[in-house]
Design a protein around this nucleic acid. Structure first.
Length: 346
DNA sequence: AACCCGGGGTA
DNA sequence: TACCCAGGGTT
């Protein structure tokens, strides 16, 4: 198949009848489109919905985002993952306030220069919010194109992505770039879906699909395997004093940067090692109880956690203390710790 | 080019 | 389990 030009018309027709109703789609103001696109990076639309609603309520425009306290920002992002997205969102908002009068630049290259905005997001915002004719190639589009063309290229290869961007640019309808880009993604998300059997029988493009004709759509796309996760042992401490729990802020770079955590130490500490660590922290336990093991899986790391419940009557320095309720409402605590806490406390 | 960065859904 | 998800930044 030389050109994919033939897919444009049936795809747009299908999209007009089948587009999901999504909050950022109903009212595609640039700020809303941008925030939604950042949240949607590596994240399913269904997961984004509640976060998007809360975020837009609390931070309704670029200036509000630019001046938001870190604590509020991270709390709004808590549980969504890839927390640098939130920090870059605010960095970009500040650039917009300083350089663009508090609005998003209506220009692909200017968008691309902003923190957190790469080729996909720049294309999505430019085309959806401003009608600028540029492609937006994400995982959905790569999958759809590889199946349409029966292509066995490795979609993990950046050169393959660039080639697909070129092909999309060639056929992009200049009058409806935003609809076209969204239609490709919508098809990939709901019909030409990953995992399991694609719904070729209801696909508006099946008559044009080489992967379907050859019966290999299910096998595509090809993607190079990722490296296996490394395993890290951690020992978590529930330090309890007067009904309050000790937490502390994580380093501002690396995994879960700048979020809060339960005090923890590397390795699987036995009771003697735990006592030693508590001594280093200046904690004088009234009682120590060993807690069950738990596992938390990140995309590239696996934490094997054990823990100790430690009752204290005096508070060592270097920690922040919070009641369960306050912790819940005020502090951004990553899922790994939240799950551990909820599993072993009432 | 390789690695880092979350959390949840799904087969 | 392993893979995927409206990816981007750093080295």
């Amino acid at each position: 198949m030389d050109s994919l030009a033939a897919i444009v018309e049936p795809l747009l027709e299908w999209y007009g009848r089948n587009a999901r109703s999504l909050p950022w789609r109903e009212e595609p103001a640039p700020y809303r489109v941008w925030v939604s696109e950042i949240m949607l990076q590596q994240t399913r639309a269904e997961a984004v919905k509640p976060y998007f609603a809360r975020f837009l309520t609390e931070l309704p425009d670029v200036p509000a985002l630019a001046s938001a306290p870190e604590q509020q920002l991270m709390k709004l992002w808590e549980g969504l993952g890839y927390y640098s997205r939130a920090r870059n969102l605010q960095k970009a908002a500040r650039v917009m306030v300083e350089q663009y009068g508090g609005t998003l630049p209506a220009d692909y290259d200017a968008l691309l220069k902003l923190p957190g905005i790469g080729p996909y997001t720049a294309g999505a915002v430019a085309s959806i919010a401003y009608g600028i004719p540029v492609p937006a190639v994400d995982g959905n589009v790569l999958r759809v194109v590889m199946r349409l063309t029966a292509g066995w290229e490795d979609i993990a290869d950046p050169a393959v992505k660039r080639a697909v961007e070129r092909r999309m640019a060639e056929i992009l309808p200049k009058d409806r770039p935003g609809d076209f880009n969204q239609a490709m993604m919508e098809l990939g998300a709901t019909v030409c879906a990953p995992g399991g059997e694609p719904k070729c029988l209801v696909c508006p493009l099946n008559a044009l699909c080489e992967g379907y004709r050859q019966g290999i759509a299910r096998e595509l796309p090809v993607k190079a395997k990722k490296k296996a996760r490394r395993i890290e042992e951690r020992t978590v401490f529930l330090l309890v004093c007067d009904g309050e729990l000790a937490i502390r802020k994580r380093a501002d770079s690396g995994l879960l940067a700048g979020l809060w955590e339960l005090p923890s130490a590397e390795g699987k500490l036995n009771p003697e090692g735990a006592a030693e660590t508590l001594q280093e922290w200046g904690a004088q336990p009234v009682s120590i109880r060993e807690m069950p093991a738990a596992k938390h899986i990140f995309s590239h790391v696996e934490w094997h956690m054990t823990g100790y419940w430690v009752d204290l009557t005096e508070r060592p320095e270097g920690f922040t203390w919070a009641e369960r309720e306050t912790l819940q409402q005020e502090y951004a605590l990553p899922s790994a710790f939240r799950a551990y806490l909820e599993a072993f406390t009432k």
